[in-house]
Design a protein around this nucleic acid. Sequence first.
RNA 1: CGGGGUGUGGCGCAGCCCGGUUAGCGCGCCUGCUUUGGGAGCAGGAAGUCGCCGGUUCAAAUCCGGCCACCCCGACCA
Length: 567
Amino acid sequence: MRWSESCIPTLKEDPREAEIPSHKLMLRAGLIKKLTAGVYTFLPLGFKVLKKIENIIREEMDSAGCQEVLMPVMHPIEIYEESGRIKSFGPELFKLHDSRNRLFALGPTHEEVITRIAREDMQSYRDLPQSIYQILIKFRDEIRPRYGVIRAREFIMKDAYSFHADDKSLDGTYRKMESAYRNIIERCGLEYRIVEAESGYIGGNESHEFMVLAENGEDEILSCGCGYSVNLEKASAALSADVKGEGTLEAMEEVSTPGASTVAEVSDFLEVKSSGIVKTLLYRAGDRDIAVLIPGDREINDIKLSALFEGEDIRFLEPDEIEDATGGPQGFSGPVGLNDQIEIIADRLLEGFGSMIVGANRADTHIINAVAGRDFEVDRYEYLAMAREGDQCPNCDSRLSVNKGIEVGHIFKLGTKYSSAMDATFLDSDGKGKHFIMGCYGFGVSRMIAAAIEQNYDRAGIIWPREITPLNVIILPVNSKDRELMDAAEKLESELLEMGMEILIDDRDLSPGVKFKDSELIGIPLRITVGNKLREGKVEILYRESMEVIEVPLEEASAVVKKYYSD
RNA sequence: CGGGGUGUGGCGCAGCCCGGUUAGCGCGCCUGCUUUGGGAGCAGGAAGUCGCCGGUUCAAAUCCGGCCACCCCGACCA
Protein backbone atom coordinates (compact mmCIF):
# COMPACT_ATOMS: atom_id res chain seq x y z
CA MET A 1 0.00 0.00 0.00
CA ARG A 2 1.33 3.40 -1.03
CA TRP A 3 0.76 6.45 1.10
CA SER A 4 0.64 8.61 -2.03
CA GLU A 5 -2.37 6.63 -3.23
CA SER A 6 -4.12 6.36 0.15
CA CYS A 7 -6.67 8.46 1.95
CA ILE A 8 -4.84 9.12 5.20
CA PRO A 9 -5.49 12.80 5.92
CA THR A 10 -3.24 13.55 8.87
CA LEU A 11 -3.54 16.79 10.77
CA LYS A 12 -0.69 18.74 12.27
CA GLU A 13 -2.82 20.56 14.81
CA ASP A 14 -5.45 19.35 17.27
CA PRO A 15 -8.95 19.84 15.90
CA ARG A 16 -10.96 22.14 18.10
CA GLU A 17 -13.85 19.73 18.49
CA ALA A 18 -11.76 17.12 20.31
CA GLU A 19 -11.09 17.09 24.00
CA ILE A 20 -9.45 13.84 25.03
CA PRO A 21 -6.31 12.21 23.58
CA SER A 22 -7.99 9.34 21.77
CA HIS A 23 -10.44 11.64 20.01
CA LYS A 24 -7.73 14.10 19.00
CA LEU A 25 -5.47 11.34 17.78
CA MET A 26 -8.17 9.52 15.84
CA LEU A 27 -8.87 12.72 13.95
CA ARG A 28 -5.24 13.72 13.56
CA ALA A 29 -4.13 10.29 12.38
CA GLY A 30 -6.88 10.23 9.78
CA LEU A 31 -8.75 7.28 11.31
CA ILE A 32 -12.16 8.91 11.38
CA LYS A 33 -13.99 11.92 10.01
CA LYS A 34 -17.03 13.51 11.58
CA LEU A 35 -20.16 13.93 9.49
CA THR A 36 -22.33 15.40 12.25
CA ALA A 37 -22.52 15.18 16.03
CA GLY A 38 -21.84 11.60 17.09
CA VAL A 39 -21.67 10.26 13.54
CA TYR A 40 -18.35 9.30 11.98
CA THR A 41 -16.87 7.81 8.86
CA PHE A 42 -14.16 5.24 9.42
CA LEU A 43 -11.45 6.15 6.95
CA PRO A 44 -9.17 3.42 5.56
CA LEU A 45 -6.81 3.26 8.54
CA GLY A 46 -9.60 3.38 11.10
CA PHE A 47 -11.58 0.79 9.21
CA LYS A 48 -8.62 -1.57 9.21
CA VAL A 49 -8.43 -1.37 13.00
CA LEU A 50 -12.18 -1.91 13.25
CA LYS A 51 -11.92 -5.05 11.15
CA LYS A 52 -9.02 -6.37 13.23
CA ILE A 53 -11.05 -6.00 16.40
CA GLU A 54 -14.11 -7.52 14.75
CA ASN A 55 -12.10 -10.54 13.71
CA ILE A 56 -10.74 -11.10 17.18
CA ILE A 57 -14.29 -10.92 18.49
CA ARG A 58 -15.52 -13.33 15.81
CA GLU A 59 -12.87 -15.87 16.65
CA GLU A 60 -13.63 -15.72 20.33
CA MET A 61 -17.39 -15.81 19.90
CA ASP A 62 -17.21 -18.70 17.47
CA SER A 63 -15.01 -20.69 19.78
CA ALA A 64 -17.43 -19.98 22.64
CA GLY A 65 -20.05 -21.76 20.56
CA CYS A 66 -21.90 -18.67 19.45
CA GLN A 67 -23.43 -18.47 15.95
CA GLU A 68 -23.13 -15.36 13.84
CA VAL A 69 -26.21 -13.84 12.21
CA LEU A 70 -27.18 -10.47 10.78
CA MET A 71 -30.36 -8.86 12.03
CA PRO A 72 -32.16 -5.88 10.53
CA VAL A 73 -31.29 -2.33 11.44
CA MET A 74 -34.85 -1.13 10.83
CA HIS A 75 -37.47 -2.35 13.28
CA PRO A 76 -41.23 -1.92 13.26
CA ILE A 77 -42.12 0.10 16.34
CA GLU A 78 -44.63 -2.52 17.47
CA ILE A 79 -41.91 -4.78 18.82
CA TYR A 80 -40.96 -2.06 21.31
CA GLU A 81 -44.56 -1.61 22.30
CA GLU A 82 -44.69 -5.32 22.92
CA SER A 83 -41.60 -5.40 25.14
CA GLY A 84 -42.54 -2.13 26.82
CA ARG A 85 -39.21 -0.58 25.98
CA ILE A 86 -40.62 2.21 23.87
CA LYS A 87 -41.08 3.93 27.20
CA SER A 88 -37.77 3.01 28.81
CA PHE A 89 -35.74 4.05 25.78
CA GLY A 90 -37.70 7.25 25.44
CA PRO A 91 -36.17 9.85 23.15
CA GLU A 92 -33.01 7.82 22.78
CA LEU A 93 -34.77 5.57 20.30
CA PHE A 94 -34.24 6.88 16.76
CA LYS A 95 -37.56 6.81 14.95
CA LEU A 96 -38.58 7.26 11.35
CA HIS A 97 -41.66 6.94 9.17
CA ASP A 98 -41.92 5.08 5.92
CA SER A 99 -43.79 6.51 2.95
CA ARG A 100 -47.06 4.97 4.18
CA ASN A 101 -46.50 6.74 7.46
CA ARG A 102 -45.75 3.61 9.41
CA LEU A 103 -43.41 4.15 12.35
CA PHE A 104 -40.06 2.39 12.59
CA ALA A 105 -37.11 2.48 14.95
CA LEU A 106 -33.43 2.20 14.12
CA GLY A 107 -32.18 -0.66 16.25
CA PRO A 108 -30.46 0.42 19.47
CA THR A 109 -30.00 -3.27 20.45
CA HIS A 110 -31.81 -6.42 19.40
CA GLU A 111 -33.49 -8.19 22.31
CA GLU A 112 -36.91 -7.80 20.72
CA VAL A 113 -35.89 -9.04 17.30
CA ILE A 114 -34.09 -12.10 18.61
CA THR A 115 -36.84 -12.92 21.11
CA ARG A 116 -39.31 -13.03 18.25
CA ILE A 117 -37.09 -15.50 16.47
CA ALA A 118 -36.88 -17.64 19.57
CA ARG A 119 -40.64 -17.47 20.05
CA GLU A 120 -41.31 -18.74 16.57
CA ASP A 121 -38.38 -21.02 15.90
CA MET A 122 -37.20 -22.50 19.19
CA GLN A 123 -40.08 -24.63 20.34
CA SER A 124 -38.63 -27.41 22.44
CA TYR A 125 -36.15 -27.67 25.29
CA ARG A 126 -34.31 -29.94 22.84
CA ASP A 127 -33.52 -26.81 20.77
CA LEU A 128 -31.80 -25.22 23.75
CA PRO A 129 -29.44 -23.73 24.65
CA GLN A 130 -28.79 -21.42 21.73
CA SER A 131 -26.30 -18.57 21.51
CA ILE A 132 -26.46 -16.09 18.67
CA TYR A 133 -24.41 -13.01 17.92
CA GLN A 134 -23.94 -10.33 15.33
CA ILE A 135 -21.68 -7.37 14.64
CA LEU A 136 -23.84 -4.54 13.47
CA ILE A 137 -24.27 -0.80 13.50
CA LYS A 138 -26.50 0.46 16.30
CA PHE A 139 -28.39 3.70 16.69
CA ARG A 140 -29.01 5.60 19.88
CA ASP A 141 -29.96 9.23 19.94
CA GLU A 142 -27.61 9.94 22.82
CA ILE A 143 -28.57 12.91 24.91
CA ARG A 144 -25.03 14.06 24.59
CA PRO A 145 -22.65 12.48 22.09
CA ARG A 146 -19.14 12.89 23.36
CA TYR A 147 -15.48 11.96 23.02
CA GLY A 148 -15.72 11.02 19.35
CA VAL A 149 -16.35 7.38 18.87
CA ILE A 150 -16.63 6.64 22.60
CA ARG A 151 -20.17 7.92 22.84
CA ALA A 152 -21.51 8.11 19.33
CA ARG A 153 -25.09 8.10 18.10
CA GLU A 154 -24.22 5.53 15.48
CA PHE A 155 -21.72 2.89 16.52
CA ILE A 156 -20.59 -0.66 15.89
CA MET A 157 -21.49 -3.20 18.51
CA LYS A 158 -21.21 -6.93 18.85
CA ASP A 159 -24.33 -8.17 20.56
CA ALA A 160 -25.05 -11.74 21.57
CA TYR A 161 -28.13 -13.40 23.02
CA SER A 162 -28.58 -16.77 24.63
CA PHE A 163 -31.68 -18.84 25.33
CA HIS A 164 -31.94 -21.50 28.00
CA ALA A 165 -34.30 -23.91 29.63
CA ASP A 166 -32.89 -23.39 33.11
CA ASP A 167 -30.69 -21.12 35.20
CA LYS A 168 -27.84 -23.56 35.30
CA SER A 169 -27.55 -23.52 31.53
CA LEU A 170 -27.63 -19.72 31.50
CA ASP A 171 -24.94 -19.66 34.13
CA GLY A 172 -22.70 -21.87 31.99
CA THR A 173 -23.05 -19.63 28.95
CA TYR A 174 -22.58 -16.53 31.06
CA ARG A 175 -19.22 -17.88 32.28
CA LYS A 176 -18.20 -18.78 28.73
CA MET A 177 -18.99 -15.26 27.58
CA GLU A 178 -17.06 -13.82 30.46
CA SER A 179 -14.01 -15.79 29.45
CA ALA A 180 -14.47 -14.94 25.75
CA TYR A 181 -14.56 -11.26 26.73
CA ARG A 182 -11.42 -11.64 28.78
CA ASN A 183 -9.69 -13.21 25.79
CA ILE A 184 -10.82 -10.45 23.46
CA ILE A 185 -9.55 -7.64 25.63
CA GLU A 186 -6.33 -9.45 26.47
CA ARG A 187 -5.65 -10.17 22.82
CA CYS A 188 -6.13 -6.49 22.09
CA GLY A 189 -3.41 -5.91 24.65
CA LEU A 190 -5.39 -3.78 27.07
CA GLU A 191 -5.58 -3.51 30.84
CA TYR A 192 -9.07 -3.94 32.21
CA ARG A 193 -11.26 -4.77 35.16
CA ILE A 194 -14.43 -6.79 35.41
CA VAL A 195 -16.89 -5.08 37.71
CA GLU A 196 -20.25 -5.79 39.21
CA ALA A 197 -22.70 -3.47 37.54
CA GLU A 198 -26.16 -2.08 37.41
CA SER A 199 -28.08 -3.46 34.49
CA GLY A 200 -29.56 -0.19 33.23
CA TYR A 201 -32.46 -0.29 30.83
CA ILE A 202 -31.46 -3.59 29.28
CA GLY A 203 -32.83 -5.11 32.49
CA GLY A 204 -32.14 -8.33 34.33
CA ASN A 205 -30.63 -9.44 37.59
CA GLU A 206 -26.89 -10.12 37.36
CA SER A 207 -24.50 -8.18 35.22
CA HIS A 208 -20.84 -7.45 34.81
CA GLU A 209 -19.07 -4.71 32.95
CA PHE A 210 -15.69 -4.94 31.25
CA MET A 211 -13.82 -1.74 31.85
CA VAL A 212 -10.68 -0.77 29.97
CA LEU A 213 -8.73 1.35 32.42
CA ALA A 214 -8.23 4.89 31.16
CA GLU A 215 -7.74 8.30 32.73
CA ASN A 216 -10.51 9.74 30.61
CA GLY A 217 -12.99 6.97 31.17
CA GLU A 218 -16.57 7.94 31.82
CA ASP A 219 -17.06 5.36 34.55
CA GLU A 220 -15.58 5.12 37.99
CA ILE A 221 -14.61 1.76 39.38
CA LEU A 222 -13.95 0.86 42.99
CA SER A 223 -11.58 -2.01 43.37
CA CYS A 224 -9.65 -3.88 45.98
CA GLY A 225 -6.45 -5.91 46.05
CA CYS A 226 -8.54 -8.98 46.89
CA GLY A 227 -9.99 -8.96 43.37
CA TYR A 228 -13.31 -7.34 44.19
CA SER A 229 -14.33 -4.62 41.71
CA VAL A 230 -17.56 -2.74 41.43
CA ASN A 231 -19.00 0.12 39.44
CA LEU A 232 -19.21 3.17 41.66
CA GLU A 233 -22.91 3.45 40.79
CA LYS A 234 -23.53 -0.03 42.08
CA ALA A 235 -21.26 0.09 45.12
CA SER A 236 -22.66 0.33 48.60
CA ALA A 237 -20.96 2.68 51.01
CA ALA A 238 -19.73 0.12 53.50
CA LEU A 239 -19.65 0.29 57.24
CA SER A 240 -16.34 0.93 58.84
CA ALA A 241 -15.24 1.64 62.37
CA ASP A 242 -14.69 5.35 61.96
CA VAL A 243 -18.22 6.09 60.80
CA LYS A 244 -20.12 7.34 63.77
CA GLY A 245 -22.19 10.25 64.86
CA GLU A 246 -21.00 13.27 66.74
CA GLY A 247 -22.56 13.60 70.19
CA THR A 248 -23.50 11.52 73.19
CA LEU A 249 -26.43 9.41 74.26
CA GLU A 250 -27.65 12.04 76.70
CA ALA A 251 -31.05 13.58 76.16
CA MET A 252 -31.39 15.36 72.86
CA GLU A 253 -31.11 19.10 72.94
CA GLU A 254 -31.86 21.96 70.60
CA VAL A 255 -28.98 24.27 69.78
CA SER A 256 -29.03 27.58 68.01
CA THR A 257 -27.16 27.56 64.70
CA PRO A 258 -27.85 31.01 63.26
CA GLY A 259 -27.44 31.12 59.51
CA ALA A 260 -25.82 27.68 59.38
CA SER A 261 -27.87 25.72 56.87
CA THR A 262 -25.29 23.73 54.94
CA VAL A 263 -23.41 20.79 56.38
CA ALA A 264 -20.15 22.71 56.12
CA GLU A 265 -21.56 25.68 58.02
CA VAL A 266 -23.05 23.52 60.75
CA SER A 267 -19.86 21.55 61.19
CA ASP A 268 -17.81 24.76 61.44
CA PHE A 269 -20.25 26.33 63.84
CA LEU A 270 -20.54 23.34 66.16
CA GLU A 271 -16.91 22.40 65.66
CA VAL A 272 -17.66 18.81 64.68
CA LYS A 273 -16.71 16.69 61.67
CA SER A 274 -19.12 16.88 58.75
CA SER A 275 -19.13 13.09 58.64
CA GLY A 276 -20.75 13.10 62.06
CA ILE A 277 -23.66 15.31 61.01
CA VAL A 278 -26.73 13.77 59.46
CA LYS A 279 -28.37 15.49 56.54
CA THR A 280 -32.02 15.07 55.76
CA LEU A 281 -33.02 15.22 52.12
CA LEU A 282 -36.64 15.56 51.18
CA TYR A 283 -37.97 13.98 48.02
CA ARG A 284 -41.27 13.44 46.35
CA ALA A 285 -41.62 9.89 45.08
CA GLY A 286 -44.79 9.49 43.06
CA ASP A 287 -47.35 11.22 45.28
CA ARG A 288 -45.72 10.78 48.69
CA ASP A 289 -42.95 12.59 50.50
CA ILE A 290 -39.80 10.83 51.61
CA ALA A 291 -37.05 11.91 53.99
CA VAL A 292 -33.65 10.37 53.36
CA LEU A 293 -31.00 10.51 56.07
CA ILE A 294 -27.35 10.17 55.15
CA PRO A 295 -24.03 11.19 56.74
CA GLY A 296 -23.24 14.86 56.08
CA ASP A 297 -20.16 14.20 53.97
CA ARG A 298 -21.87 11.77 51.60
CA GLU A 299 -23.83 12.12 48.41
CA ILE A 300 -26.97 10.25 47.52
CA ASN A 301 -26.69 7.58 44.85
CA ASP A 302 -29.65 8.54 42.68
CA ILE A 303 -29.64 5.21 40.89
CA LYS A 304 -30.09 3.33 44.13
CA LEU A 305 -32.76 5.71 45.31
CA SER A 306 -34.73 5.32 42.07
CA ALA A 307 -34.40 1.56 42.39
CA LEU A 308 -36.32 1.73 45.69
CA PHE A 309 -39.22 3.41 43.96
CA GLU A 310 -39.29 1.51 40.74
CA GLY A 311 -41.34 3.24 38.11
CA GLU A 312 -42.11 6.33 40.14
CA ASP A 313 -40.75 9.76 39.37
CA ILE A 314 -38.47 11.08 42.06
CA ARG A 315 -37.47 14.67 42.60
CA PHE A 316 -36.28 16.98 45.33
CA LEU A 317 -38.93 19.00 47.13
CA GLU A 318 -38.93 22.68 46.30
CA PRO A 319 -38.11 25.08 49.19
CA ASP A 320 -41.77 26.00 49.77
CA GLU A 321 -42.77 22.34 49.71
CA ILE A 322 -40.13 21.66 52.37
CA GLU A 323 -41.72 24.35 54.56
CA ASP A 324 -45.13 22.76 54.04
CA ALA A 325 -43.88 19.28 54.78
CA THR A 326 -41.59 19.92 57.75
CA GLY A 327 -42.66 23.28 59.13
CA GLY A 328 -39.13 24.61 58.81
CA PRO A 329 -37.04 26.22 56.07
CA GLN A 330 -34.70 24.41 53.71
CA GLY A 331 -31.38 23.64 55.37
CA PHE A 332 -32.82 22.87 58.79
CA SER A 333 -34.78 19.70 58.11
CA GLY A 334 -34.49 16.71 60.40
CA PRO A 335 -36.29 13.50 61.33
CA VAL A 336 -37.38 14.52 64.83
CA GLY A 337 -41.07 15.34 65.09
CA LEU A 338 -41.61 14.88 61.39
CA ASN A 339 -45.11 14.30 60.07
CA ASP A 340 -46.01 10.57 60.18
CA GLN A 341 -47.01 10.67 56.52
CA ILE A 342 -43.38 11.15 55.55
CA GLU A 343 -41.44 7.90 55.25
CA ILE A 344 -38.01 8.11 56.85
CA ILE A 345 -35.35 6.08 55.07
CA ALA A 346 -31.90 6.07 56.62
CA ASP A 347 -28.68 5.04 55.00
CA ARG A 348 -27.22 1.87 56.47
CA LEU A 349 -24.14 3.79 57.50
CA LEU A 350 -26.32 5.44 60.14
CA GLU A 351 -26.87 2.11 61.84
CA GLY A 352 -23.40 2.68 63.24
CA PHE A 353 -24.25 6.13 64.57
CA GLY A 354 -25.03 6.36 68.29
CA SER A 355 -26.50 9.81 68.26
CA MET A 356 -26.92 12.32 65.50
CA ILE A 357 -26.82 16.02 64.84
CA VAL A 358 -29.87 16.83 62.73
CA GLY A 359 -31.95 19.80 61.68
CA ALA A 360 -34.75 20.84 64.03
CA ASN A 361 -37.28 21.78 61.33
CA ARG A 362 -37.02 25.34 62.60
CA ALA A 363 -34.96 28.22 61.28
CA ASP A 364 -31.45 28.54 62.72
CA THR A 365 -31.85 25.50 64.94
CA HIS A 366 -30.34 22.01 65.03
CA ILE A 367 -30.72 19.12 67.46
CA ILE A 368 -27.78 17.32 69.02
CA ASN A 369 -27.83 13.87 70.62
CA ALA A 370 -30.82 12.69 68.59
CA VAL A 371 -31.04 8.91 68.77
CA ALA A 372 -32.88 6.78 66.24
CA GLY A 373 -35.50 4.60 67.87
CA ARG A 374 -35.62 6.86 70.93
CA ASP A 375 -36.18 10.36 69.59
CA PHE A 376 -37.57 9.43 66.19
CA GLU A 377 -38.36 6.31 64.21
CA VAL A 378 -36.59 5.18 61.07
CA ASP A 379 -38.99 3.34 58.77
CA ARG A 380 -36.24 1.44 57.03
CA TYR A 381 -32.50 1.32 56.47
CA GLU A 382 -31.17 1.05 52.92
CA TYR A 383 -27.88 1.45 51.06
CA LEU A 384 -28.28 4.90 49.57
CA ALA A 385 -25.02 6.80 50.00
CA MET A 386 -22.56 6.95 47.13
CA ALA A 387 -19.51 4.87 47.88
CA ARG A 388 -16.08 6.43 47.52
CA GLU A 389 -12.38 5.80 47.62
CA GLY A 390 -11.27 4.61 51.03
CA ASP A 391 -14.51 2.81 51.85
CA GLN A 392 -14.15 -0.66 53.20
CA CYS A 393 -14.15 -3.61 50.80
CA PRO A 394 -17.20 -5.79 51.43
CA ASN A 395 -15.13 -8.93 50.94
CA CYS A 396 -12.06 -8.20 53.05
CA ASP A 397 -10.54 -5.70 55.47
CA SER A 398 -8.85 -3.51 52.87
CA ARG A 399 -9.86 -0.13 51.61
CA LEU A 400 -11.20 0.37 48.09
CA SER A 401 -9.40 2.48 45.53
CA VAL A 402 -10.87 4.34 42.56
CA ASN A 403 -9.98 3.94 38.88
CA LYS A 404 -11.55 5.36 35.79
CA GLY A 405 -12.50 3.15 32.92
CA ILE A 406 -14.21 2.93 29.56
CA GLU A 407 -16.98 0.36 29.42
CA VAL A 408 -16.29 -1.84 26.40
CA GLY A 409 -18.33 -4.85 27.34
CA HIS A 410 -21.40 -5.61 29.40
CA ILE A 411 -22.93 -9.01 30.05
CA PHE A 412 -26.35 -9.56 31.61
CA LYS A 413 -28.42 -12.38 32.94
CA LEU A 414 -31.78 -11.23 31.69
CA GLY A 415 -33.83 -14.07 33.08
CA THR A 416 -37.33 -14.02 31.63
CA LYS A 417 -37.70 -10.24 31.32
CA TYR A 418 -38.17 -10.23 27.55
CA SER A 419 -39.55 -13.73 27.10
CA SER A 420 -42.35 -12.90 29.56
CA ALA A 421 -43.07 -9.48 28.10
CA MET A 422 -43.23 -10.97 24.62
CA ASP A 423 -44.63 -14.31 25.77
CA ALA A 424 -41.88 -16.36 24.17
CA THR A 425 -42.11 -19.93 25.38
CA PHE A 426 -40.74 -23.40 24.69
CA LEU A 427 -42.06 -26.79 25.64
CA ASP A 428 -39.99 -28.24 28.51
CA SER A 429 -39.30 -31.90 29.19
CA ASP A 430 -42.20 -32.01 31.63
CA GLY A 431 -44.54 -31.10 28.79
CA LYS A 432 -45.21 -27.60 30.11
CA GLY A 433 -44.71 -24.34 28.24
CA LYS A 434 -42.12 -22.11 29.90
CA HIS A 435 -40.59 -18.73 29.21
CA PHE A 436 -37.08 -18.76 27.87
CA ILE A 437 -34.35 -17.84 30.29
CA MET A 438 -32.12 -15.39 28.50
CA GLY A 439 -28.74 -13.77 28.62
CA CYS A 440 -27.39 -10.91 26.56
CA TYR A 441 -23.85 -9.81 25.94
CA GLY A 442 -22.76 -6.52 24.39
CA PHE A 443 -19.36 -5.39 23.22
CA GLY A 444 -18.57 -1.91 21.89
CA VAL A 445 -16.40 -2.53 18.85
CA SER A 446 -15.91 1.03 17.62
CA ARG A 447 -15.53 2.26 21.17
CA MET A 448 -12.76 -0.28 21.66
CA ILE A 449 -10.58 1.61 19.17
CA ALA A 450 -10.73 4.72 21.29
CA ALA A 451 -10.16 2.70 24.46
CA ALA A 452 -7.05 1.14 22.93
CA ILE A 453 -5.67 4.57 22.06
CA GLU A 454 -6.48 6.02 25.49
CA GLN A 455 -4.24 3.34 26.90
CA ASN A 456 -1.52 3.50 24.24
CA TYR A 457 -0.24 6.87 23.13
CA ASP A 458 2.57 9.31 23.73
CA ARG A 459 3.36 12.89 22.72
CA ALA A 460 4.12 11.86 19.17
CA GLY A 461 0.92 9.95 18.58
CA ILE A 462 -0.73 6.57 18.73
CA ILE A 463 1.12 3.39 19.67
CA TRP A 464 -0.89 0.44 18.32
CA PRO A 465 -0.91 -2.85 20.16
CA ARG A 466 0.35 -5.35 17.62
CA GLU A 467 -2.88 -7.38 17.35
CA ILE A 468 -5.00 -4.47 16.26
CA THR A 469 -2.56 -2.26 14.38
CA PRO A 470 -3.97 -1.19 11.03
CA LEU A 471 -0.70 -2.20 9.35
CA ASN A 472 2.31 -4.17 10.50
CA VAL A 473 5.14 -2.12 9.06
CA ILE A 474 5.63 1.31 7.56
CA ILE A 475 8.56 1.56 5.19
CA LEU A 476 9.96 5.04 4.91
CA PRO A 477 12.30 5.83 2.04
CA VAL A 478 13.88 9.10 3.09
CA ASN A 479 13.85 10.43 -0.45
CA SER A 480 11.19 8.90 -2.64
CA LYS A 481 12.72 10.34 -5.80
CA ASP A 482 15.88 8.38 -5.17
CA ARG A 483 15.52 5.28 -7.33
CA GLU A 484 17.90 3.19 -5.24
CA LEU A 485 16.06 3.88 -2.01
CA MET A 486 12.71 3.16 -3.62
CA ASP A 487 13.97 -0.07 -5.16
CA ALA A 488 15.22 -1.25 -1.78
CA ALA A 489 11.94 -0.25 -0.15
CA GLU A 490 9.93 -2.12 -2.73
CA LYS A 491 12.09 -5.19 -2.46
CA LEU A 492 11.58 -5.19 1.28
CA GLU A 493 7.87 -4.71 0.79
CA SER A 494 7.49 -7.75 -1.42
CA GLU A 495 9.47 -9.88 1.03
CA LEU A 496 7.23 -8.80 3.86
CA LEU A 497 4.05 -9.21 1.83
CA GLU A 498 5.06 -12.77 1.19
CA MET A 499 5.22 -13.30 4.94
CA GLY A 500 1.62 -12.10 5.16
CA MET A 501 2.48 -8.69 6.57
CA GLU A 502 0.48 -5.57 5.80
CA ILE A 503 2.75 -2.81 4.60
CA LEU A 504 2.55 0.92 4.00
CA ILE A 505 5.29 2.58 1.97
CA ASP A 506 5.49 6.31 2.51
CA ASP A 507 6.39 7.18 -1.07
CA ARG A 508 5.23 10.79 -0.80
CA ASP A 509 7.66 13.38 -2.10
CA LEU A 510 7.87 15.24 1.18
CA SER A 511 10.77 16.26 3.33
CA PRO A 512 11.86 13.47 5.68
CA GLY A 513 10.80 15.28 8.86
CA VAL A 514 7.17 15.32 7.76
CA LYS A 515 7.22 11.63 7.01
CA PHE A 516 8.88 10.76 10.32
CA LYS A 517 6.30 12.75 12.27
CA ASP A 518 3.38 11.29 10.36
CA SER A 519 4.62 7.75 10.83
CA GLU A 520 4.85 8.28 14.58
CA LEU A 521 1.41 9.88 14.64
CA ILE A 522 -0.31 6.95 12.99
CA GLY A 523 1.49 4.66 15.38
CA ILE A 524 2.42 1.59 13.35
CA PRO A 525 4.55 -0.62 15.64
CA LEU A 526 7.53 -0.96 13.31
CA ARG A 527 9.06 1.59 10.95
CA ILE A 528 11.80 0.71 8.55
CA THR A 529 13.75 3.72 7.36
CA VAL A 530 15.55 3.32 4.06
CA GLY A 531 18.07 6.14 3.82
CA ASN A 532 21.74 6.92 3.56
CA LYS A 533 22.70 3.79 5.53
CA LEU A 534 21.68 1.84 2.46
CA ARG A 535 25.14 2.60 1.07
CA GLU A 536 26.41 0.23 3.75
CA GLY A 537 23.59 -2.14 2.88
CA LYS A 538 21.68 -1.26 6.05
CA VAL A 539 18.24 -0.01 7.07
CA GLU A 540 16.95 1.27 10.38
CA ILE A 541 14.11 -0.29 12.31
CA LEU A 542 12.22 1.83 14.84
CA TYR A 543 10.16 0.20 17.55
CA ARG A 544 7.35 2.71 17.94
CA GLU A 545 6.55 1.86 21.53
CA SER A 546 10.05 2.29 22.96
CA MET A 547 11.28 4.56 20.17
CA GLU A 548 14.34 2.36 20.13
CA VAL A 549 16.20 2.20 16.81
CA ILE A 550 18.34 -0.63 15.49
CA GLU A 551 20.39 -0.86 12.30
CA VAL A 552 20.25 -4.08 10.39
CA PRO A 553 21.41 -5.27 6.98
CA LEU A 554 18.61 -4.93 4.44
CA GLU A 555 18.29 -8.65 3.95
CA GLU A 556 17.82 -9.26 7.69
CA ALA A 557 15.06 -6.72 8.16
CA SER A 558 12.20 -9.07 7.37
CA ALA A 559 13.47 -11.57 9.94
CA VAL A 560 13.34 -8.84 12.59
CA VAL A 561 9.75 -8.06 11.62
CA LYS A 562 8.81 -11.69 11.70
CA LYS A 563 10.29 -12.10 15.16
CA TYR A 564 8.44 -9.05 16.45
CA TYR A 565 5.09 -10.38 15.31
CA SER A 566 5.64 -13.95 16.41
CA ASP A 567 6.81 -13.24 19.97
C1' C B 1 -33.56 19.44 28.36
C1' G B 2 -30.90 23.08 31.93
C1' G B 3 -26.11 25.99 32.35
C1' G B 4 -21.64 27.93 29.65
C1' G B 5 -19.07 28.78 24.94
C1' U B 6 -17.99 29.00 19.61
C1' G B 7 -19.33 29.62 14.25
C1' U B 8 -14.48 33.89 9.31
C1' G B 9 -11.01 29.31 2.45
C1' G B 10 -9.31 22.11 3.94
C1' C B 11 -7.14 22.81 9.40
C1' G B 12 -5.80 26.34 13.48
C1' C B 13 -6.78 31.40 14.40
C1' A B 14 -6.92 37.29 14.16
C1' G B 15 -10.36 41.12 12.85
C1' C B 16 -16.04 42.25 15.85
C1' C B 17 -16.14 46.27 21.73
C1' C B 18 -15.20 51.49 18.67
C1' G B 19 -19.53 49.82 11.43
C1' G B 20 -15.98 52.71 6.39
C1' U B 21 -10.94 50.69 0.76
C1' U B 22 -9.56 44.78 -2.82
C1' A B 23 -11.37 40.39 4.78
C1' G B 24 -6.02 39.11 7.09
C1' C B 25 -2.19 35.49 9.35
C1' G B 26 0.07 30.47 10.04
C1' C B 27 -0.37 25.57 8.19
C1' G B 28 -2.13 22.81 4.08
C1' C B 29 -3.20 22.80 -1.46
C1' C B 30 -1.59 23.82 -7.08
C1' U B 31 2.70 25.21 -10.81
C1' G B 32 7.99 25.83 -11.60
C1' C B 33 13.04 25.70 -9.98
C1' U B 34 16.23 24.36 -5.97
C1' U B 35 16.28 20.88 -1.84
C1' U B 36 15.99 15.58 0.59
C1' G B 37 17.78 12.15 7.92
C1' G B 38 13.31 15.32 11.96
C1' G B 39 7.22 19.39 10.24
C1' A B 40 12.69 22.74 3.56
C1' G B 41 13.78 27.54 0.30
C1' C B 42 12.48 30.97 -3.57
C1' A B 43 8.92 32.64 -7.20
C1' G B 44 4.04 32.45 -8.91
C1' G B 45 -1.11 30.78 -7.97
C1' A B 46 -6.15 28.72 -6.56
C1' A B 47 -9.50 28.80 -2.79
C1' G B 48 -13.96 32.51 1.79
C1' U B 49 -22.32 33.81 0.06
C1' C B 50 -17.59 35.96 7.28
C1' G B 51 -23.38 29.63 10.03
C1' C B 52 -28.60 31.09 8.12
C1' C B 53 -32.79 34.62 7.87
C1' G B 54 -34.43 39.34 8.84
C1' G B 55 -33.65 44.42 10.75
C1' U B 56 -30.88 49.24 11.61
C1' U B 57 -27.66 52.32 8.40
C1' C B 58 -25.42 56.06 2.88
C1' A B 59 -22.46 51.68 4.40
C1' A B 60 -22.62 45.44 8.39
C1' A B 61 -17.83 39.93 9.43
C1' U B 62 -18.55 44.15 12.93
C1' C B 63 -24.71 46.82 15.86
C1' C B 64 -29.98 44.56 16.94
C1' G B 65 -33.63 40.32 16.64
C1' G B 66 -34.76 35.34 15.44
C1' C B 67 -33.18 30.56 13.94
C1' C B 68 -29.53 26.66 13.08
C1' A B 69 -25.13 23.91 13.89
C1' C B 70 -21.06 22.47 16.78
C1' C B 71 -18.21 22.12 21.51
C1' C B 72 -17.93 21.95 27.04
C1' C B 73 -20.46 20.86 32.24
C1' G B 74 -24.95 17.64 34.25
C1' A B 75 -28.89 13.16 33.66
C1' C B 76 -28.01 8.26 29.70
C1' C B 77 -24.84 3.89 27.81
C1' A B 78 -21.61 -0.64 24.11
